[in-house]
Design a protein around this nucleic acid. Sequence first.
DNA 1: AATGAAAGCACACTGGT
DNA 2: ACCAGTGTGCTTTCATT
Lengths: 151, 151
Amino acid sequence: MVDDIDRSLIRLLIQDARRTYHELSKEVRLSANTVADRVRRLYASGVIRQFRAELDPAVLGRGLNMVADIRLREDADRARFEYELRSVPQVVSGVRITGEYDFELRFACIDPAEFETVVDRLKTELGVRQVRSRMVLHDIAIDAGQLLDLA
Amino acid sequence: MVDDIDRSLIRLLIQDARRTYHELSKEVRLSANTVADRVRRLYASGVIRQFRAELDPAVLGRGLNMVADIRLREDADRARFEYELRSVPQVVSGVRITGEYDFELRFACIDPAEFETVVDRLKTELGVRQVRSRMVLHDIAIDAGQLLDLA
DNA sequence: AATGAAAGCACACTGGT
DNA sequence: ACCAGTGTGCTTTCATT
């Protein structure tokens, strides 16, 4: 299904998704044609979910990143919460989780005051009961290609 | 520095980083030429950190995602921990955080047994003292372009 | 900053091994 | 599964505004 050549192609596209098929073909020593077929197949099969540009929040002035565990009030509607979250621009990612809290969110803010405003908004408008937050000091660089190592 | 046209281009490239300059030019009503210049400038200035292929762990058989807060032993070397983490393929992302714990990590595993093995390895080989983990039920779809809304 | 023209490349097809 | 050829489309450079 996913052989060594596919893995090489994926690793190259993780580093730079805009590489041409011709460039890729030189790396894996196949024709550009075959490479294009393989990449299209990897995309169609869902192994590659998408090709996307990744922004740097710090360069956009949002240097304060926070992680927060979130618990909703008993009467809150989880689906609605998830939907409403998309209109909170400081929220950059989120997952529903098991355990003591309901969600874990990541925020990119300009400063503490902005984070404060967001937390207030979550509590007053979005049914949030409890927030357990901490600051992100830095990201650990992880190569997403690691996923392929045991796959 | 980053005007409305840049924002449009970024939003388009977040959805699909492999769109051609020609395609982008039709959306923003500029020449392909100018669009190429703008995108290269956004990349060079660091606003766009990278163009990357994004994998789907579930399709690769890693359907069990975990979030874990990690605390190191007092004598552990944080820099060394971060370095060694890169040889643990189940770790797909990580940040250093303030507060009670030192790091927050994301894992993509095949099954609970694999996660158990990883946790043991972190404790025996990487100086981890305490692990507070919970399962990821699902990801909330967030448009990364949100970052641009207030920037 | 933005543009058009034109050369050089890359891409999607078809067809063939 | 892979490759070559072909027509079409894309990217780049350069001159120009």
